[in-house]
Simulated assay, not measured.
Amino acid sequence: MNLPAHVLIREVGPRDGLQNEPEILSTDAKVAMIDALARTGLPRIELTSFVRPDVIPQLSDAAEVLAQVDIPPGVARSVLIPNERGLEKALAHRARFDEINGFLSASESHNRANVNRPVAESLAGLERVFATARAEGLRCEGVISVAFGCPYEGSVDPTRVFELAGALAAAGAEEVAFGDTTGMANPRQVGEFFAAARAALGDGVQLTAHFHNTRGQGLANVLAALEAGCTSFESSVGELGGCPVPKGATGNVATEDVVSMLDEMGVQTGVDLPALLDVARSMQDRLGRPLGSHTLVAGPVDWQNTGV
């Protein structure tokens, strides 16, 4: 098994994890969550998004969250930007974040369902967003949703995905994340995909995997991506999250499950697993329901006393 010595994890729970929750957490609760996550050793955190509050009310307090969080030096702070208007709002708080994430879908149907515009229009908008962001000294990530399969159209041609990724890189994205937005990917597909992505895109852009655990294959897909050379992942504490469209697209793969698996395999993440589990427990208590994380239930592996 060919595995990297270490990987980077971007925690997306405060944004992707909370945007689909029926309950709207208070600003204080979000800030407490983010401040705790920032002290677990996670190197990157997606804090919030400047989306329309009538579309995603769960993130309507983006400015307040940015103003109040206390992030230690060395932790990269990113925000999701839906369009030029969102970037304009975010730049009013430029000192409070380091990176932006801009997104589009690999399929026309999902892009229209998600943002009500064709893919070409989204790409043109991202080109303008990235140009402005880079002029402000911000690092840019392009996110391609439904990269492994679309709930409306079925299979997605990887060549199409790589063309979009190349266009995003040409527009200024230093990183491209491939999203299994509704959990349709399988490990064989993922391994072949990332091997082909690196060959198609070269070494000039960072490739990131973003898996959902909708059908229970999230960790298997992480392993397949690892073996294919991917060293950057996005995940959500407690397995929070899910795509707002369509229904049934459940949570991101749990950060603590990813960290636990990697720790057991000797792949370094720099993340303090017990501290991360404390955050997951606090979120479970705050939301008043069990979360989907397996490590949250079982705890870390104790090789001295497994209790079995």
Rank of each mutant, 00 (worst) to 15 (best):
G86V: 04
S107P: 11
I100P: 12
S155V: 14
C150Y: 02
N114D: 00
G142W: 00
N116R: 15
I56D: 07
L87G: 08
S107W: 08
V75P: 01
N101Q: 14
R85I: 05
S145E: 11
V143E: 03
A120M: 01
C140R: 00
F97G: 08
A95G: 11
N114S: 04
F130I: 06
V146P: 02
A131E: 12
V115T: 13
V75R: 14
R117V: 01
R139M: 02
G125H: 03
V143D: 05
L80G: 07
F148G: 03
A135L: 03
A147K: 03
E141Y: 00
N114T: 06
A95C: 06
V55I: 15
R139A: 11
F148T: 01
R85S: 01
V143K: 02
A147L: 03
V75S: 10
P73C: 06
E121A: 15
S122R: 04
G137N: 09
D157M: 00
H110F: 15
A120G: 07
S60T: 09
L123G: 00
S107R: 10
N111K: 02
A62R: 12
A92Q: 13
P151V: 01
V79A: 02
L123D: 01
V115I: 13
A76Y: 00
G137S: 09
E64P: 15
A133S: 06
E141A: 09
L91M: 09
E99L: 10
V69P: 09
R85C: 03
I81W: 15
V146C: 12
E99F: 02
L87A: 03
D98A: 09
L66D: 07
E153C: 02
F97N: 07
E136I: 02
A124E: 10
Q68C: 10
L138A: 08
G137H: 11
E141R: 14
N111V: 00
C140S: 00
F97E: 07
R112W: 11
R77Q: 04
R112K: 12
A76V: 13
F97V: 08
L66Q: 10
S122C: 03
E153I: 04
R77T: 09
P82A: 09
S105L: 09
P72C: 13
F148P: 08
S60L: 02
A113T: 03
A95L: 11
S60F: 11
S105F: 05
A62K: 11
V129I: 11
P151L: 01
R85K: 14
Y152I: 06
R94G: 13
S155T: 10
P72R: 14
E99M: 10
G149M: 05
G154N: 02
L126E: 02
L138T: 08
G74S: 10
C150M: 02
